[in-house]
């Protein structure tokens, strides 16, 4: 999953640094991701993983690092499995 998240961020995050050198807990906003770019990342994640982030998860912090994004996706999957 981390690999797929990295690929989506590379394509949509418009970072000012090379993502391959970025640790999973690095702050993506510090790495140059704008609010508008984070929306593109969010929509691409939804498309790729076939999920929909509920309003409560549409926060800045949910998309601030690869770790945070992975945690959000895992949470969504776990909730979907329970239903």
């Amino acid at each position: 999953m981390t690999k797929e998240i990295r690929r989506i961020i590379t394509e949509y995050g418009r970072l000012s640094v090379d993502i391959t050198a970025l640790p999973v807990d690095a702050d993506l906003y510090q790495a140059g991701m704008t609010s508008h770019a984070s929306i593109d990342v969010m929509l691409a994640l939804e498309d790729h993983f076939d999920v929909e982030f509920p309003d409560g998860m549409l926060t800045r912090s949910a998309f601030e690092s690869i770790t945070a994004i992975e945690a959000a996706l895992l949470k969504l999957r776990a909730e979907a499995a329970v239903r």
């Binding site: 609010s35 508008h36 984070s38 929306i39 969010m42 929509l43 309003d55 549409l58 926060t59 800045r60």
Partner: peptide, 11 residues
């Protein structure tokens, strides 16, 4: 829209 809600929260 939905992406707008995220922009608003971030703002």
């Amino acid at each position: 829209g939905r992406s707008g809600r995220m922009l608003a929260v971030s703002q």
